[in-house]
Write a protein that binds this DNA or RNA. Structure first.
Ligand code: SF4
Ligand code: SF4
Lengths: 136, 136
DNA sequence: GCAAAATAATACATCAAGGTAGTATTTATG
DNA sequence: CATAAATACTACCTTGATGTATTATTTTGC
């Protein structure tokens, strides 16, 4: 019940950026502030650009800004872009032949909980997280 | 929100074995029935023995049987033995400096859901899963 | 007591995620 | 237009999870 590292990085970056969602953030700044290695972060930022969350400005005074309103970026979108959302809905036993409700107690026992989790991810935006976040 | 492969194997093995919890199951049988590679499964079975869930009988007519009642084997025990239970309770953002409630919206948004998940794992036994499981 | 059937142990192979380095490209500004 | 400051790209390294192969050990039953 965790995201992979890259997804976690993505969250941290975007949450930090959402503190001032009009600002340009350089990869150097983000890297130092969040303790994420430069090169890896750069790739991630490029990916997040290609996914449409942020946009890059190359050259001097460049950096990254949101490409759209943080009210329109759902947590599920971020997960989906980085590690894919499939596994959050798929069988916890990786029994790919089966996907039927009511066939296995696992499904019954955790299906509802998983759905709530997924719902939360699909309805929570970066804006929603903004105020209370301690991640600086 | 998934277990790693080894944990999934462990679940499948133990769930299958719990269908008839007095029987000896050979690694060959389990391997073929569940499509798990022999050598890897063997190691897992040895680990599950050492963890006290099952016991091994070496030599001809050997195999593995439960070492204790399946009413006393909680899903959380299995996870804990194989991949550790820590991450099911730790910060989803891997912000290891912090572990305070109310400090970050993430915590508020998903804390309750995670607790329910953990509770379910800690109160559900192999016996509870027995009847309805389709995993043969 | 020997052969067959089982587990145990050990060492090595493979693969994907994550991490690192070096070079190329773009752009603002003096 | 040259330089500095930024991102983009590409190739390689490291590590941990998973997979495979080989050999050793134990036990049963003829
Ligand atoms: S019924 Fe069980 S095996 Fe089938 S998809 Fe649901 S959890 Fe997986
Ligand atoms: S408050 Fe946020 S950062 Fe801190 S432990 Fe909870 S989820 Fe993690």
């Amino acid at each position: 019940m965790n995201f992979n590292k890259t997804t976690t990085y993505a969250f941290k970056v975007l949450i930090l950026m959402s503190h001032n969602d009009q600002l340009d953030y350089t990869s150097t700044y983000l890297s130092e502030k969040l303790n994420i290695q430069m090169q890896y972060l750069r790739r991630l930022l490029t990916d997040l650009s290609k996914a449409g969350f942020i946009q890059s400005k190359r050259g001097k005074n460049g950096g990254f800004v949101f490409a759209k309103s943080i009210k329109n970026i759902f947590l599920s979108d971020i997960i989906d872009a980085v590690e894919g959302l499939e596994k959050f809905n798929s069988c916890m036993l990786e029994n790919h032949d089966c996907n039927k409700e009511g066939k296995c107690s696992f499904h019954d026992a955790f299906g509802e909980i998983k759905n709530k989790m997924t719902d939360a991810l699909k309805t929570t935006t970066l804006f929603d997280l903004k105020e209370k976040s301690i991640i600086t």
